[in-house]
Amino acid sequence: MQLIKLLINGKEYEVAVKKNWTLLYVLREVLDFTGTKCGCNTNDCGACKVLIDGEAVNSCVVLAHKAEGKNIITIEGIAEGSKLHPIQEAFIETGAVQCGFCTPGMIITTKALLDQNPSPSRDEIVQALDNNLCRCTGYVKIVEAIELAAKRLRGEA
């Protein structure tokens, strides 16, 4: 076991990890950040995405000790207290949420996209979702949600 420090949602956690533990495992099983989901553990579905220094990354393929010193944001860190982020509101309003299992990962991907590109085209949105699988929605309302969130964050709606 190795003692490491992880900066998650602005707070520092000291945690003992094994070398082969992934960030996903530490988030869910050690620190109880269970909003981050596991759908495949093979880097294919995006349910486990977190922001690492602003990039949306699958936490199932990041070793926990490699995330030391980085700024990690999980789905629990998107809202401000009980005030939802405009991306979250847009997902709710457009009906982009069904079973909800892919939703945290989708929102993390959206956050990274809109932080970097406030006016993405439809093509840029679906490209950004290339590593996020959903079996419920056909992605239609997820794309709509992202368009609505982008508009609102630009102050246009």
């Binding site: 909003g35 981050t36 998107i78 979250q88 997902f91 069904q98």
Partner: peptide, 23 residues
């Protein structure tokens, strides 16, 4: 009416407990 599903706010925040989240 068009209505969001009842637990949507729990799903977008990661608060909803799925079985794998339970200990």
């Amino acid at each position: 009416n068009n209505r969001p599903i009842r637990d949507a706010a729990l799903k977008v925040t990661g608060q909803l407990q799925y079985t794998a989240d339970m200990k």
